[in-house]
Amino acid sequence: MARYALVIDSRRCIGCHSCTVACRVHNDLPIDMIYNPVTTVGPTGVFPNVHMVHIPLLCMHCANPPCVDACPSAASQQRPDGIVWVDEKKCVGCKACVMACPYGARIPNHEKGTVQKCDFCKERIDEGLRPHCVETCHQKARIFGDLDDENSEVYKLVHGEHSIRLLKELGTDPYVFYIYGWEV
């Protein structure tokens, strides 16, 4: 079984928001819904000694996802390959998962009354394709793959470079890894 992960190479990310738009357009998201914001940290420091880094966010597909535990309807689920997703039919819109997710990855859809989130483009994955946001990234700053496969690029990056995970201290065990040129 694969274990999907995403590595974001902040040394290459330029904060262009193309991933945000690709996700929204191809997943047909409502205009005010963003699965994958890209934030900018900085410029920090004092002119001219400054730093800046862009941080693309999305669902971390946590190995220990508090959102799934919180979901009273069992609409939120995790597949064996790690992908956390919401079965829209079952979702009652209680927003327990919205509150439980430390990464702001879950967004209520007010039209439907349900909650949505990034599902790693699982239909594409199942067809052997890469997620839209990965595909669209000109800078090749998003690297998607199977972390159980020692030959995969994600495996090599996670094990070869100094990568960090956001809010790791919360014990969610996120599967999105960030490589920085410097500490944020």
Binding site: D69, A70, C71, P72, S73, A74, A75, K90, C91, V92, G93, C94, K95, A96, P108, N109, H110, K112, G113, T114, V115
Partner: peptide
């Protein structure tokens, strides 16, 4: 408070969830 009040019965479905 639910987004889909008519589906409220579903909140009984996940024994691991505090809400359930």
């Amino acid at each position: 408070e639910l987004g889909r009040p008519l589906q409220a019965w579903r909140v009984f479905m996940n024994p691991r969830a505090i809400l359930t």
